[in-house]
Simulated assay, not measured.
Amino acid sequence: MAESSNNNNVIPRHLTEHTYSRLKDQYAPNLYDKWLDKTEPSKHVLDDIIVAALLIELWRNMYGVVPASEVTDETRDSSQFPGFVDIACGNGVVVYVLLMEGYSGYGLDARRRETWTIFPKSVQEKLKERICIPKPFLDATNTGEIGADIHTGDFPPETFIISNRADEMTVWTPLMAALSCLASPLPFLAIPCCSHSLSGTSYRYPAPANNIQSKGHGTHLNTTQSHDDIVEQAPQPASGDLRALRLAKDKEKNANGRWDSMYGSLTAKAMSIAEEIGFEVEVFLLPLSTTRNMGVVGGRQLAAQQWKTRAKQRNLAPASVDHHHNNSKTAELIQKITEITQRECSRDGGIQNAARAWIERAQSLNSGQSSGNQAH
């Protein structure tokens, strides 16, 4: 795989640390005090604030957009933002922080969480209980009413997709990003967690051939870059001792060895599918409290370039841009997505069987009958 860009250029370390520190001081005490979810807040709050800080700095880099607290007369025009969707928002903390920071967007999850009720009414209105049935599965089964609100992963042009430990939806993320706007696929950040096939069943992907030495369209992790270098660009903001312990542990591993684990193989699979449909992919380690801490960014550079081009043409509203023109490129992309879904569903007996399994599992998640989730 080709070299990745320097993570420090994608998400400047000092800016991320500063933003994280500010967000932690501003939001964590209130979240700890009011927490209603069955899980311990310490397991999620700080990690989700880290994700929010990383997104804020990523979007600063991509769109020139700044948090509401930084908006001035000089930066007011740059505060325009294409919007986000958190496709498996779980406890809603990431959505809450981003909305409070002035970024427009909303969150979706298969089941409502108690913690949603601690947020301001304006935030609660942006957290929606929806079952995801990807459009290829909906088409394959001709599914009608299933007793719950659904979404198909079809989002407005330019929307930034957040897939934060979205489990069953991780590998679907680049596919939904492409299907949403074939002429200009949506950018995304995917943070993989538990490994599932396209049908939503637990599945361990084989390790990538030759430890991610395969070819692709996009940009991959630089396997010649040491693990220490990657961690140093995204340092653990919690305990210095914890970070030192993790560094010592990782030094014992081969730089490519992480791709042999179930988590590494899942991450590599999400990357390879994204590249297969034309995304430029970048991967980096997030400074989270868990070892499931890889971030996969797709389409960052193209989305940033397109956004800046349109920023120079303010008289042309984004909505008037033709995102759905029919040409050979979009036809090829549709064919490629069809081939991928058919191939990936073959292990589950074909796309119709995989679709039925997905829908049954989604319904059980919505009713709270499963310990799995389409969220973290």
Rank of each mutant, 00 (worst) to 15 (best):
H220Q: 12
N142D: 09
L138A: 14
K312F: 05
D86W: 05
C194Y: 06
N7L: 14
S367P: 00
G295P: 06
T117L: 02
D322Q: 07
A148I: 00
G102Y: 06
W59C: 03
G90A: 11
S320G: 01
H227A: 13
G216A: 14
Q236W: 02
I50L: 14
I118F: 08
I359K: 00
F160Q: 01
P235H: 02
R347G: 01
I359M: 00
E282A: 06
Q213A: 14
A319C: 08
K126S: 13
M262I: 15
S104I: 13
G257C: 00
L23W: 02
M1C: 10
Y27P: 02
V71W: 02
S104W: 11
A68D: 00
S265D: 14
L247T: 07
S197M: 01
L127V: 06
A255N: 13
N61G: 10
N8R: 08
D77N: 01
E101M: 13
L221D: 09
H376Q: 10
R314W: 00
Q233L: 07
S202N: 08
T290E: 03
D348Q: 11
A166M: 09
C194V: 14
F279A: 05
K251F: 11
K312R: 10
T290N: 05
A362R: 02
S202A: 10
S370N: 11
S289V: 00
E252V: 08
P206H: 10
T19H: 03
E145P: 02
H227S: 14
I150R: 00
A52S: 15
A362G: 09
R111I: 04
A178W: 06
Y103R: 07
K253D: 15
N353R: 12
N210C: 11
L138N: 12
T39P: 13
I87H: 05
Y27N: 03
G368A: 00
R113M: 06
K329G: 02
L23M: 07
I131A: 08
I340W: 07
N353I: 09
A234D: 04
G83A: 11
Y203K: 13
L54C: 13
V51L: 15
A319F: 01
D139E: 15
R112E: 09
Q124I: 02
T115V: 10
S78T: 04
F119I: 04
V296Q: 04
I118K: 08
K308F: 07
R111T: 00
D33Q: 08
A255L: 11
